[in-house]
């Protein structure tokens, strides 16, 4: 067993784990943060996307022991305060950007990253940057709407 010390959503954790445990299992089953989903478990679908030092990565493609000292944000960390939706969550709700909702945590984490690290994105650019996230329900139209909307809202807060 190896001890892993890491920060998730601003909170420090220190837990023992087997080296073979994947980061996504560690987050869900050890820390009981169930918002991060496991979809394909092969690195394609993006449901397990988390932010690691602010950048999106797929937590099913990383061993938990490799996250020693990492600063991570999961979908639970989006809410600015208890019961209040973030810009990204608000935009997904208003634009009906989810149906079954299984892929949504991954898309929300991508949205958090993309709207803050890009100039105003075209629909084409958004689609291109979301290649690593699959949604089997929506056909992506409303998701692209939501990302555009979230970016507009984010820019408005900067003015």
């Amino acid at each position: 067993m190896v001890t892993v010390n890491l920060k998730i959503n601003g909170k420090q954790y220190s837990e023992e784990t087997e080296p073979r445990m994947l980061l996504v299992h560690f987050i869900r089953d050890v820390l009981k943060l169930k918002g991060t989903h496991i979809g394909c478990d092969t690195g394609h679908c993006g449901a397990c996307t988390i932010l690691w030092d602010g950048k999106p990565v797929k937590s099913c493609q990383i061993l938990a022991v490799q996250a020693e000292g990492a600063n991570i944000m999961t979908v639970e960390g989006l809410e600015p305060e208890e019961g209040k939706l973030s810009i990204e969550q608000e935009s997904f709700r208003e634009n009906f950007a989810q149906q079954c909702g299984y892929c949504t945590p991954g898309f929300l984490m991508m949205t958090r990253y993309l709207i803050r690290n890009n100039e105003e994105m075209t629909r084409e650019e958004i689609r291109e940057k979301l290649h690593g996230n699959y949604c089997m329900c929506t056909g992506y139209q409303q998701i692209v709407d939501a990302v555009q909307d979230a970016q507009r809202k984010y820019f408005a807060t900067k003015k």
Partner: peptide, 9 residues
């Protein structure tokens, strides 16, 4: 290469 997430890692 691959996608945004994989390029970060």
């Amino acid at each position: 290469i691959a996608d945004v997430q994989i390029r970060n890692r």
